[in-house]
Amino acid sequence: MGEFVFFLLALAWPFLAGSYGTGLITEALIFAIAAMSLDLLMGYSGLVSFGHAAFFGVGAYALALSGMKLGLNPWLGILVAVMTSALAALIIGYFCVRVSGVAFIMLTLAFAQLLYSAAVKWRGITGGSDGIGGFDRPQIAGLSLNDPIYMYFACLLGFVLSLWLLRRIINSQFGHALVGLRENETRMRALGFSTDRLKLCAFVLSGAFAGFAGALYAIYNSFISPDALSFAQSGMFLLMVVLGGVGSLLGPAIGAAIFLLMKQFVSSHTEHWLAIVGIIFVCCVMFFRSGVYGFLKQWLERGART
């Protein structure tokens, strides 16, 4: 019910909010997809990836390069971006799922950093730290994503589709197995689950969704730079998930929106956006572990009881 109201609001939003607000929410929808994809790993499978920006960035670069270097239609570019990110996740995940806990954190971090330095150093292809821009935005039947309103609706569609697919995955037997993995891996193996294959599969799916978000991001900005692959970007995704509430899918999406709104607000008042991000991070971990979603849920349940 609440979700339906939200959806109606989302449909009406561009006509209520003007171009600034529309752009803001467009960006929030894109980051929400990325945050939800991280939640599939972090919240449902217990795999905390500290290098999730890698797949987001790979998707973004794949979209940009498939258009500029291969002359591919941008619609096809989105598909290419998703596939490339999934492939990157397959290769990186192949190594990462062999280790667990802290080593997993470090490996994901190291691989992301590897891709980051590749993007910075291969100037010939990636344009180095200047990035690349000015590629075509997709259009269909005369409707071009150059128009912010169409861009907004494309992202809304992408978000709803992602949410639906991710929910589907979580409610499937595969999703249940992932949760088992999060809760108790030793037990899962004793029961006969191929835990490494399950993890790898989750990693690839998560990478694919992150790549999809990355492609939308590249289209939205018509520009991409190594920042999208950076340590800081991975951190922002983690913060969105933690802020919104780990393991609730919708929570991280809310987290992404709050994060961006806060960023807009704070950066227009102070230069210390980064410190504020850090402090929020610290506070979330120390005092607010169930996130906004968990808090809202508790509050609503308490309300229902009284």
């Binding site: 589907r168 409610n171 037997q173 249940h176 294959r197």
Partner: peptide
């Protein structure tokens, strides 16, 4: 079951 079945609801 089939733990790699992504489509059908558990």
């Amino acid at each position: 079951g089939n733990s790699f079945d992504l489509a059908q609801r558990a």
